[in-house]
Amino acid sequence: MEYTAVAELIALNGGRLVGRTRLQKSVYLLQACGINLGFDFDYHHYGPYSDELASAARDAEALGMVDVEWKTAYGNEYAIFQSKVPVGDFPNFDKASEVLRILSKYEATVLELAATADFLSKNGYRNDAWEETKRRKATKITAQRLEQSKALLGELKTLH
């Protein structure tokens, strides 16, 4: 079931994952690397987003497979997910671990920018995905984050 996939993914990420943005974009990028967890992504206000994943995360919490703790920073609350289940039979275990290791080096905003550019490149912006990402995320896309987002996608590509 979907909620098991969420709980096991968090387990694979060292048992802990910070933030719903990171959760959404991590699953998107894992699937973009060919590790299919069965979630369908559409474009939401903030880039690729899966309703099913958001719902599965709530179900995993309701079923006691994941604990969610809320913290506050800069006036905003954010979630810290802790898995209470073992990793189990996670698909493509080694590659998934490596993807998560790479993602852990980058901040959530960079994950969002990279996931957005990847999604846009497959949805009508093959040649100008980064330009369109800049248009949609003008406040987030500093020169440094743009460089990091490209570096992140470059690293993931070497795993293909």
Partner: peptide, 14 residues
Amino acid sequence: KIPLAIDGEHYAEA
């Protein structure tokens, strides 16, 4: 002006 943040990471003000 308010701060903007993702997952507890500050990224801009608006």
